[in-house]
Design a protein around this nucleic acid. Structure first.
Lengths: 137, 137
DNA sequence: CGGTATCCCCCGAGATACTG
DNA sequence: CAGTATCTCGGGGGATACCG
């Protein structure tokens, strides 16, 4: 490495300016990072879903958070929202092409998580045993 | 799909029990999701780093949050922490094999984010224009 | 059915000060 | 240099009630 930078993060912080938080990919990663988006994307990767179907499939999500989550995904162009003028209302959600691209990456992450979950849980238990009362979680 | 389940989330919720929040891969995904882990992993994917090097490379992270982040990564067996008994102390961090596996997936996500950032930003602007004062962010 | 609108609480995370 | 220890604040997110 030649500059004053330690290198390696250029992709994550393309502009390199400490005073410019809008650079980097955090805003996109935040969508992957938030509590429910990944789970909603995973469910929608299996096909079109109605609001209620989504809520039942994504165990534990509140109505409020599901609404916020699908709205944000729609805003990012990751899902399309379709309203049918029935009574009562019928609304379906579906991944866009962009959403499907992301979901395939999310699937890799999910697969990795599933196959490493046991080992990580064990690692945590061992660490906690050797570091009592550290407060780290 | 044959059962009463809408299907598609088995990987994300292997046990399917609503009363068992410990199931699923959220706890692993949370590590990917939190603010700094991904950035630290990305930096460490370029090689071993000292604490101060990490803090300079990961622009914006506070000392406290960097400490917490590397401790959690260590706890999960994603990084190793090595203390050299020099004065003052020297501490280095390095990805484990498991950490390198995850970092390669994170890299895919980072690449995707970088190439889709502009389009997503545009999509958000359009959505905001058509949904004034919605409060969704 | 598929949402809004409110209230409220917890904790993630920054700022600052101190230490082996 | 590489951390702890406190204090603080904002907002993510749950619970509940109401609506077209």
């Amino acid at each position: 490495m030649s500059a004053g930078h330690t290198g390696g993060t250029d992709l994550l912080d393309p502009c390199g300016s400490p005073t410019h938080p809008d650079c980097g990919i955090r805003d996109v990663l935040d969508r992957v990072g938030d509590t429910w988006s990944v789970l909603v994307i995973a469910e929608l990767s299996a096909g079109t879903r109605r609001f209620g179907e989504l809520q039942r499939a994504v165990v534990g999500v509140s109505q409020r958070m599901l609404t916020l989550t699908v709205r944000r995904l729609e805003r990012d162009g990751l899902v399309t929202r379709t309203v049918y003028p029935t009574v009562p209302a019928t609304v379906t959600y579906e991944l866009t092409q962009r959403g499907r691209e992301l979901s395939s990456l999310v699937r890799l992450l999910a697969d990795w998580s599933a196959s490493n979950r046991a080992a990580i849980t064990r690692s945590r238990a061992e660490w906690d045993a050797g570091n009592p009362g550290s407060g780290v979680r």
